[in-house]
Amino acid sequence: MLRLAAVLYILVASAVGGASVIAVLSLDMRQGWQIAAAFATGLVISIPIAVVLGKKIYNAMQGPKPI
């Protein structure tokens, strides 16, 4: 599950990081530290998202649980 979450993190981090940079740029914040802080925040926020998605996909791949 950890490897799946790591692969998902690459995808989720680029999407969330990019979206946060776009949000900062749309607010007319163009200094370098503002853009870098937005991207770093997006990377940190992506960690729990990737873990939750990884758990859900891993559990779905295991099939139904026997009763």
Rank of each mutant, 00 (worst) to 15 (best):
I67E: 15
I45R: 03
I10G: 14
L25P: 09
I10W: 11
A60W: 09
I49D: 14
I49F: 15
I67R: 15
A23I: 12
A6Y: 14
A60I: 06
G54I: 09
Y9I: 11
S46G: 11
L8I: 01
I57F: 02
V21S: 10
A23M: 03
A36G: 03
L2Y: 11
G32T: 08
Y58P: 09
V51Q: 07
A13M: 00
M29V: 12
L53C: 04
A13S: 13
V12T: 14
A6E: 05
A37N: 05
A23G: 11
I67Y: 14
A50H: 08
V7G: 13
L11K: 10
A23T: 05
V16Q: 12
V12M: 05
A50L: 14
G17L: 05
I10V: 13
V12E: 12
A19P: 06
A19T: 03
L8H: 01
A23D: 10
I10T: 09
P48V: 13
I35D: 01
P66K: 06
P66D: 06
V24E: 04
V51C: 10
Y9C: 15
L25D: 08
L8T: 01
M29G: 02
V44Y: 15
S46V: 01
V51M: 14
K56G: 14
S26W: 08
W33H: 15
D28K: 09
I47F: 11
Y9W: 12
P66V: 06
Q31T: 15
R3S: 00
L25G: 11
T41D: 07
V24P: 02
L43W: 14
R3F: 02
G32F: 06
A38W: 01
F39Y: 02
G42D: 01
L2W: 00
G18N: 00
G63D: 14
D28C: 11
Q31S: 14
M61Q: 07
I47Y: 02
V24W: 03
L11G: 12
V24S: 01
T41I: 00
G42S: 09
P66M: 05
L4H: 09
G18W: 06
A40P: 11
A50K: 05
L8P: 02
Q62Y: 08
V44G: 15
Q62R: 13
M29F: 10
G18K: 00
S46H: 08
V44N: 15
P64C: 08
L43G: 12
I45P: 02
G63K: 02
Q34W: 06
M29I: 04
K56Y: 13
Y58V: 14
S26P: 02
L8Y: 04
Q31Y: 11
A6M: 14
L25Y: 03
